[in-house]
Amino acid sequence: MKANSENSQKLGFLLLFVCIIIALLALGSIIYFIASNGIKAFSWTFFTDIPRKSMTAGGVGPAIVGTLYLVLGSVLFSLPLGVITAIYLCEYSPKNFTLNLIRMSINNLAGVPSVVFGLFGLAVFVKLFGFHVSILSGSLTLGILILPGIISASYEAIIAVPQSTREASYALGATQIQTIKKVVLPAALPGILTGMILAVGRAAGETAPIMFTAVTFYSRSYPSSVMNEVMALPYHIYVLMTEGTHPEEQKLIAYGCAFILLILVLAVSSIAIYLREKQRRKYV
C-alpha cells in the first residue's frame, strides 16, 4: 500500500516534469529555428533599405519604421486613457454602478478577439471617421486593444501606493487632485511604465487589428504623415508567406522579419517582467 502510493507519487511528479519540459521545449524550438534562420538575413541594408526586386531582395526598413509608428501611436492614445481610468477606479471609486460597469467593460474588452478589433477599426476609424487605411486608424485600433492591459497594470501600481502616503498629503492641506498628481502618480510611475512596456510588446506583434486599418503590403518609401498607410513587420511576414511570387527567396526575408519581431517582443517583455518583479519585491 505504502509502496504503491510512493510509486504513484513518483509517476505523477514525472508527468508534471514532462509537462514543463514540453512548454520549455516549445519556446526553445521556436527561438532556435527563427534565430538560426533569421540571422542569415541580417545585414545593415536589411534594416535600412526598402524592399527590392518584388520583395526578394533589399531590406525591410519601412516595415520596421511602420511598426514603430503604430506602436508609438497606440501607446500615445491609450496610455492617458488607461492611467486616468485606473486613477478613477482607485482614487474616486465609490462602490457603485459606474464602477461595476467600467470593470465589466474592461474585463470583456480584454477578451475580445483581435480580429474583431480589426473589424471595429475598419468600420469606425477607416470608414465612419474617414481616416482611411492609415497610421492613425491602425494606432487607434491597436490602442483600444492594449487599453485593458494598460489599465490593469496602472491599477495595480496605483493601488499599491500606501493609503498612509495619501493621508500625509491630505493632512498637509493638499486637495485630492494635488495628492494624485504630486504624490500618488510619482510613486506609481515605475509600475505604470512597466505596464506600458508590456503593452508595447503586445502592440508590436499584433497583425489582425492592423490588417484592414493600417497596413499596405508594399511601400517604396517611409511614411511622412499619420494619414499614410504603412508596412508593418508582422503583416510583412504574412504577405511574404502567402502572397509571394518567389517563395524561396522570400522565405529568408520572412525569417529575418520574424527574428526582428521576436527579438523586439522578447526583449521588451523581458525588461518589463524584470522591472515588475523588482517593484513587487520592493513593496513586500
Binding site: 498612509s164 502616503t165 498629503s169 493632512a171 510613486a187
Partner: peptide, 13 residues
Amino acid sequence: VGMVFQKPNPFPK
C-alpha cells in the same frame, strides 16, 4: 490643524 500619524509616512521623495 496639522497631523502626525501612527506610522511615519514620509513621501517617497
